Amino acid sequence: MVRFGYTMMTEQAGPTDLVDHLVLAERAGFDFSVTSDHYFPWLASQGHAPHAWTVLGAAAQATTRIPLMTYVTCPILRYHPAVVAQKAATLQLLSGGRFRLGLGAGENLNEHVVGGGWPPADVRHEMLEEAVEIIRALFAGGYVNHRGTHYDVESAKLWDLPEQAPPIGIAVSGQQSCGLAGRLADLVIATEPKSELLESFARHGGAGKPRVGQLPISYDPDRDAAVARAHDQFRWFAGGWKVNAELPGPTAFAAATQFVRPDDVAGSIPCGDDPDRFIAAVAPYVEAGFTEVAVVQVGGETQPAFLDWAERTLLPALRHTWPE
């Protein structure tokens, strides 16, 4: 069985609209939702970056069924892991047990705002491993003291703990992160349909655990408009995470993608309103072994029309292709 999710993309809509969109997504019948957590948009044309955790708190109260998840939060610089644990526990309570904590090693785009430089990937993974250790210790209850390589925790305790701690997901893009996720995570997160990532996750202890992917799409009855919007707001996607994690701001992303053409974007992001085109884009994720796929509809202003079409056309087509 494959579950299909909706993405609250905080880079392309304000906080009130994001919550309104999730209410519509729940009504449309999406199986779960994920939420980006950025301090900056990738490109200025996206135009937004509200505080994701505040939005999630409002979304937890505005919805009743749809699961919530960070996709992903970085607990190593902008947020201290002890604070992430407190936020996650609170959100699990507010949502009635519907929250999963997706974590990753972060992007310079968002983490540079607190100063201190941008560590190389291997150091970020060390920091992430230590952060997960702290978060799990706090989820277990009681006082936590920690003297580590990267973090100190002084007599911390979560006073409001849910009966079931939020499952922890870890984002992967290569062998090092797959090893980390396999050892420490309850589920794996990836944005590329690469079976080798899931296989590595399984070898390191992740066998049988949920595997969550994400796919940008650009729905519009006018395919040319869909392509133009995807190029305007999502051409950064062509860089890949090894590049994207290093760039410091929207101006850098604009410069790095100045030669990406609309046709290049249309080759990697399905555009238009033909459900077969979207099914073909989801297929590599299913074939790679993902158990959940969240779609990102490009363009904040297009969400209500997209969600109406998704309820009537896209979700039935996906479930017909991959029935329970």
Rank of each mutant, 00 (worst) to 15 (best):
F32T: 11
D31F: 08
H21W: 12
F40M: 12
H38A: 09
T16Y: 11
F32Y: 14
D20E: 15
R27Q: 15
T10A: 11
S33I: 09
H38F: 07
F30S: 05
T16Q: 15
A28I: 03
L18A: 13
P15T: 13
F32P: 08
V34K: 01
P41A: 04
D17Q: 15
D37K: 00
F30W: 10
V19R: 06
T10I: 15
V19F: 06
T35L: 07
E26K: 02
F32S: 10
S33Y: 02
T10F: 03
D31Q: 11
F30G: 08
A13C: 06
A25V: 07
Q12W: 07
S33V: 10
M9K: 00
D37Y: 03
R27S: 13
A25P: 09
F40K: 02
D31S: 12
E11L: 03
D20A: 15
T35G: 04
E11Y: 06
L24R: 14
E26L: 03
A25L: 08
V23N: 02
H21Q: 14
G29P: 10
V19K: 04
D31K: 10
Q12S: 12
S36Q: 01
D17Y: 00
Y39R: 00
P41I: 00
M9A: 13
S36A: 08
G14N: 02
V34D: 01
E26G: 01
